[in-house]
Simulated assay, not measured.
Amino acid sequence: MQDNEMPHKRASCGESTGAGPDATASRTALDADELVVGYPTADEPVIDGQTLAVPEGEVTALIGPNGSGKSTLLKGLSNRLEPEDGRVLLDGRRVDSFESKELARKLGRLSQQNTAPDTISVEELVERGRYPHQGFFESRTESDERAVNEAIAMAGVEHLRDREVGTLSGGQTQLVWIAMAIAQDTDVLLLDEPTTFLDPHHQLKVMQIVETLRDDSQMTVVLVLHDIAQAARYADNVVALKDGSMEARGPPEEVITKQLLADVFDIKATVIETEYGPQVVPIEPLDDDESQSSLSRSERTESRPDSPD
C-alpha cells in the first residue's frame, strides 16, 4: 500500500476513545493522522500530533474555548494550511495530492469571514459555487442551473434571489453563503462557526440546513460551534479541543459531561438530559487550579458514562 493511501474503513471518532471490541467500524470521509498544523509566525504548532477519523454521512462538531485550535484543525483538514507533519486523507487519498478544482468538487469549506461585492445578486453569488464543475469559458449548464435552484431552495432564500448581497442582513447573508457552498455539490462540507453572531432564528435555520444535508444528501459535515447546546442537539459526534489537543470525542451524551466542562471550558455546570440531547446550565467560572479539583468524587463518577456501580 502506498504512503498516500490507507484503509478507508476504520473506527469513527466516537470509537477512537476506547469503545469495546464489539464496536462496529464505520466508513470515514476524512482521516487526520498524527497531524501537526501551525502558522509560520508562531514558534509552536497549534495542533500537535492529533489523530481524527470523521465518519462519512454524519455531522461532527468541534467544540472548545477560544484559541483551542478548532479553526486551525479545520484549515488543516481542508488543506488551507499545509501540515508540518502527519497527513490528511479524503476518501483514503492525501488531500494535498488533489488538484485544486478536483479537491473543490469533493470538499467544500466556508470560513468565518467571506467577502463578495455588495452589488452582486444572491443568485450570482450562489452560482459561484459551481466554479469547480465548469471548464474554461464554459457557460452555465442545465446541471448548474438545477444545482443553483436546489441550493437556493434548501437555504430558504428564494425570496432574496434578485437582491444585492450588500442589502441583506447578517443572517440572510450567511444563508446565502451556505447556499453557495451547497451549490458546490461536494461530499464533505467544512463550516467554521456558521452560527456565530446570528440571531436565534437564523442560527436554527443554519442548523436545520446542516441536518437536511446529512439526512437527505448523506453529506459529511464538520463544523466549529461555540454553542454547546447546538452541538449536542444536531451533531452525531462531538470533538472537544483544548490547547490544540483533542480531550474527548464521541456521541454528545458521552462527551458533554460536568467533568469535561470543568476540564475543557473551565466552568462549573450541570448537564440535563433532554429529548434534544444534553443541555448545559453554566453555574460559575473556575480558576485554573480549580478545574481539576472542583468536582467531588461522586460528581466525577456521575459525569462518566457507563461507570461501574
Rank of each mutant, 00 (worst) to 15 (best):
M1W: 02
M1K: 05
D3Y: 03
E5Q: 07
M6Q: 02
R10K: 01
R10Y: 00
G14R: 06
D22H: 08
R27V: 13
T28Y: 05
A32E: 02
D33G: 00
D33K: 05
D33S: 01
E34F: 01
L35Q: 00
V37G: 13
G38Q: 03
Y39W: 07
P40Q: 09
A42K: 13
D43G: 09
P45G: 15
D48R: 13
Q50I: 15
Q50S: 15
T51P: 15
L52K: 10
P55S: 11
T60I: 09
A61H: 03
L62M: 02
G67W: 01
G69N: 01
S71T: 06
S71N: 03
L77M: 09
L77W: 00
S78Q: 01
N79C: 02
P83E: 03
P83M: 06
V88N: 05
L89C: 08
L90N: 13
G92C: 15
R94L: 14
D96V: 09
S100W: 08
K101S: 10
L103Y: 06
A104K: 11
R105G: 04
R105S: 00
K106C: 05
S111W: 11
Q112M: 11
Q113L: 11
N114E: 15
P117T: 09
I120M: 15
E123S: 07
E123G: 00
E123W: 05
E123I: 02
E124V: 08
R130H: 04
Y131W: 06
E142Q: 13
E142V: 07
E142F: 02
E142S: 12
A147Y: 01
V148N: 03
E150W: 01
M154H: 03
G156V: 11
E158N: 15
R161P: 00
D162V: 03
R163K: 14
E164S: 14
G166V: 09
G166C: 10
G166W: 09
Q172T: 02
T173D: 02
Q174M: 03
L175K: 09
W177K: 01
M180Q: 03
A181T: 08
I182S: 03
A183V: 01
A183F: 01
Q184G: 00
D185K: 04
L198G: 13
P200R: 12
P200N: 14
H201I: 09
Q203R: 13
Q203D: 11
K205W: 03
V206D: 06
Q208P: 00
V210D: 07
L213W: 10
R214V: 04
R214F: 07
D216P: 05
M219S: 10
V221Y: 11
L223F: 14
D227W: 07
I228L: 06
I228N: 05
A232Y: 05
A232S: 13
Y234S: 07
Y234K: 06
N237D: 10
V239N: 10
S245R: 14
P252M: 13
E253N: 14
E253H: 13
T257R: 12
K258A: 12
Q259H: 15
Q259C: 03
L261S: 15
L261R: 15
A262K: 10
F265S: 08
D266P: 01
D266R: 12
K268R: 15
K268E: 12
V271M: 12
V271Y: 12
I272F: 12
E275K: 14
Q279I: 04
V280H: 09
V280K: 10
V281P: 06
P282R: 08
L286G: 07
D287W: 05
S294E: 11
S296W: 04
S296F: 02
S296N: 07
R297F: 05
R297V: 06
R300L: 12
S307V: 12
